[in-house]
């Protein structure tokens, strides 16, 4: 019992990965864990919502269908806004990324649910997917012309080495910043939430005075919960917008 209550206010506990079905291939641990479960749940929730809500293909949409249509048009507008009409070839990728990150973030807001995007390896893999797509498509489409990305036009010849070095570093740091931004936001938000909620639990253990003083962290917990819902959406959106901007580089490498 003491161990359990210790876990209840341990803010890191929620990020622990536990095996559900152990799987081992070639000595490497590929177990189906709670993280895997919530990846599957995320995909299932997003897919079921999008498929079922659009099942009727209503000319006049129902509420659920309207939400599906709005998410479609929202992502389409974001992508078209930064990458132009050519960018629409990446629409399935961008839409999948947005929905996956958004639903994963939102599911993470449920108590006792695992937050898939609070794992750096997950966000890093998604960022590598984006940068990998940008790099491969950029070289495939423009060949060596893609390297113009690192040589901005209209820069005096003398400073080109310096500017190119900076451009290369900024390009290489993109997957890091893209993944760390999402990971750190989700991690920090959930830790903060857990710490403040833990205060409430701790203080209520100290009798009437404790209960009275627990009101402040409780209010803060409510406020931070609201903030975290905003962050959950905002980080999914930021991830999507940055993806769109990087894809625009792949389509039009010359600045």
């Amino acid at each position: 019992m003491a161990g359990n209550s210790g876990n209840a206010i341990d803010p890191i506990h929620q990020f622990h990965i536990s095996k559900i079905f152990p799987v081992e291939i070639g000595g490497v641990d590929f177990s189906f864990t709670n993280a895997s479960l919530f990846m599957v749940v995320t995909v299932a929730v997003a897919t079921l919502f999008l498929v079922l809500s659009t099942n009727r293909r209503g000319l006049v949409p129902s509420r659920a269908q309207l939400m599906a249509e709005m998410s479609y048009e929202f992502v389409a507008a974001t992508l078209r806004g930064s990458a132009g009409n050519d960018g629409m070839r990446f629409f399935p990728l961008v839409f999948s990324l947005f929905m996956f990150v958004f639903v994963a973030n939102m599911l993470g807001m449920f108590p006792y649910f695992f937050t898939v995007t609070s794992q750096i390896i997950v966000t890093f893999a998604l960022a590598i997917l984006v940068i990998g797509t940008v790099t491969i498509y950029g070289f495939f489409k423009h060949g060596a012309g893609f390297l113009k990305l690192f040589v901005p036009s209209g820069v005096p010849a003398g400073v080109i080495p310096l500017v190119s070095a900076i451009e290369v570093i900024s390009f290489l740091s993109r997957p890091v910043s893209l993944s760390v931004r999402l990971f750190a936001n989700m991690l920090a938000g959930h830790i903060t939430l857990k710490v403040f909620a833990g205060f409430v639990v701790m203080l209520t253990g100290f009798g009437a005075v404790g209960v009275a003083s627990a009101v402040l962290p409780l209010i803060l917990t409510v406020a931070i919960t609201a903030l975290e819902f905003l962050v959950a959406f905002l980080q999914a959106y930021v991830f999507t917008v940055l993806t769109c901007m990087y894809l625009a580089d792949a389509l039009h490498p010359s600045h």
Partner: peptide, 11 residues
């Protein structure tokens, strides 16, 4: 490895 595998599969 497990996270990557299941992410690749589910995504």
């Amino acid at each position: 490895p497990s996270q990557l595998l299941w992410l690749v599969l589910s995504f």
